[in-house]
Design a protein around this nucleic acid. Structure first.
Lengths: 204, 204, 204, 204
DNA sequence: CATTAACCGAGACGGTACGTCTAGTCTTTTA
DNA sequence: TAAAAGACTAGACGTACCGTCTCGGTTAATG
């Protein structure tokens, strides 16, 4: 038996979906997440409230999907997201480059409000948190793990190092500084991070 | 000019303050932060709502204060909080011990809900976030910085290393795993963190 | 310019309207007007508070409408309200009969609490007072004026008498005794009123 | 047994009593009775709330007492209140004069708000209503009864007429017009009332 | 005259209700 | 026949007052 009147996804209005995404992102950016209401999203999107409730279980899920959409199609005209960390052979340089790009992204005001909102929601709402990690964080982390493994093959990183843990030495400090505002973000800072951490996992 | 009829703190009811703290912590633990309402806190504490609004600007501030109180006076019978990382001369062992203790604390269900709630609120509410960091996080981080400086004096850490950045190699990965559930917490994990990171900042 | 998002009366829930009327009348009867709260009316009617605030500006208006409804459809099985004072040719007898009926009505506990409440509110709230008079009092008074005019045509009342003033000789003393409890209500009393007053306006 | 710690009336502050009276009357005049709060009276009078609650059971009682005080000492410079209806031998003229004076009083804005408020409260609060009638209305009515009795002695009114009922023919219509705003107040109106009613109780 | 009882201004307290706002559901109307 | 529009129940929000309860500080009568 199916769910109580499960909506027919085939008949779903793509226009409404997009309008809801746009409205959610705009409102979170303008008034912040907690003051963004479902009613306001519906009104701004020119959509009935029920249309939102029909397709998403909560405000957070709307925003997550909207954000994933946004992340999937970056600024128009910009180069496609690499989906891989460059592998020039110089691990330190490659990591520094990627982290600098991450700093730029974290400071982009377009991302600030929604990603903070989603991160915050994810701390408390475990289901959403896992989705956030799986869909947004994990793919990024995998790139770091891949690059580190490649470095292991090249002998630039000790073979007994677990890349899944090692990558956190580069990524987590930056994440925490951003999320919890425990310190300023800068290229100098991320460069230093790479230097400190790389020595730790380099061959002795 | 003074605030609009600021209440007289001298006449404040200590009993009510404590009851409100207890009720806030209990409710956050039981139903979660978003479903914890000021009304419910007041009812549970046997207190008028106005008594809460008179002394705290928001639900988040109540919880922050309650949590600081809780953190300030640990489980009865337990040994006093160290307020310093042990300095046995073996930096690796000392850091591992402290991180293991932190793991224990993070897994303590008493702290789980309220500290997650505060962390989440702090991501979005900048003012509260700064207070959270200043009053709870910062004192802890200072201990790490102190221990690292001591290690530098002893020659166990390179002199040109910035302790404020270096400490993040130990602390941030654990924080992120806990907050964002990006991986399991265990002694083995923190031990590994210490090993990787320490090499990075050790003399060459 | 229109009102701030005036609700669409066509989609109004008739069921809720009736339930609110009933609850308001019941509560005023049970606990009195000042202790009848909007929240209690909503709860008793199984209705959200907003549904009351959406359609009525105040508790008093709810009660007025409820009372008008009640007055418009008298006790089931009872004879239809006359909507006219009998005209048997004997003015004194006709007035006595009507005033006796009024005494009965004023002593009916079903009407006591709400009509006192509305009268009291109307003393202070001019807008509601005028509505109360227009919709409830005025129609009754018109009946007296009509009957007196008919009596003038029949020569039972002097032609130069103003019926709008004359009717107050019969009606106002009874109203004041009831409202302000300045004396007991009885058939003997109203009969006496008619006798005294009728002489005053009879031909000399 | 005495009341629970009955206050010592001998030590009562006369200054506070007067200030409370003045504040109550002023506030009722300014913002109306329902929006006049005990807290505001206390604040305006420069008095603690408890001082009001110590000596009066309710807001209504404060106002009643204040109003009685006000009525007891009329406008300075004005002639003393008669405390008796003139008895010139011309009953009609005497009644007209008194009713004209009453019209003037009823239209005095100083009295309007508080007396309406007290009358309204008295409709619902039976205890206060009786006090209102006894202390304010009844003394006035007795004057009418006395004058009518005097007229009976002089043969200007039938001996079998009950003055307590007869007086209502003059007084109640005016009272109702004022309280319920069922018509305008004027000398012409009260003169007409006297004419109509007097015929009714005159000898045949 | 010193003591002392209690009234006083002040205002925090536990409460209740206010009128508003939003969540999430249900119903009606429109395209 | 799906979606917009929006009324519905439900209940939390933050505010305003209620009537009670301290708290010091006068203030007046008593010992």
């Amino acid at each position: 038996m199916v769910d109580k009147s499960a909506p027919d996804a085939a008949r779903r209005s793509e226009k409404s979906r997009r309008a809801i995404h746009a409205a959610a992102l705009a409102l979170v950016g303008e008034v912040g997440y907690p003051r963004t209401t479902v009613e306001a999203i519906a009104a701004r999107a020119g959509v009935g409230k029920q249309t939102i409730y029909r397709w998403w279980p909560s405000k957070a899920d709307v925003l997550l999907e909207a954000f994933l959409d946004l992340a999937g199609q970056p600024a128009p005209g910009a180069a496609e997201q690499p989906y891989a960390i460059p592998d020039t052979g110089d691990l330190a340089a490659d990591l520094k480059a990627v982290l600098r790009a991450t700093v730029d992204e974290l400071l982009d005001p377009r991302f600030e409000a929604p990603s903070r909102a989603l991160a915050a929601e994810g701390l408390i709402n475990e289901q959403l948190g896992r989705e956030f990690v799986t869909k947004l964080l994990e793919p990024q982390l995998r790139l770091y793990a891949d690059r580190l493994r490649s470095a292991q093959d090249a002998g630039a990183v000790r073979a007994d190092v677990d890349p899944r843990i090692a990558l956190e030495l580069f990524v987590s400090p930056l994440a925490q500084r951003w999320l919890q505002r425990t310190g300023p973000l800068s290229y100098a800072y991320t460069d230093t991070l790479v230097e400190y951490a790389l020595h730790g996992i380099a061959p002795r």
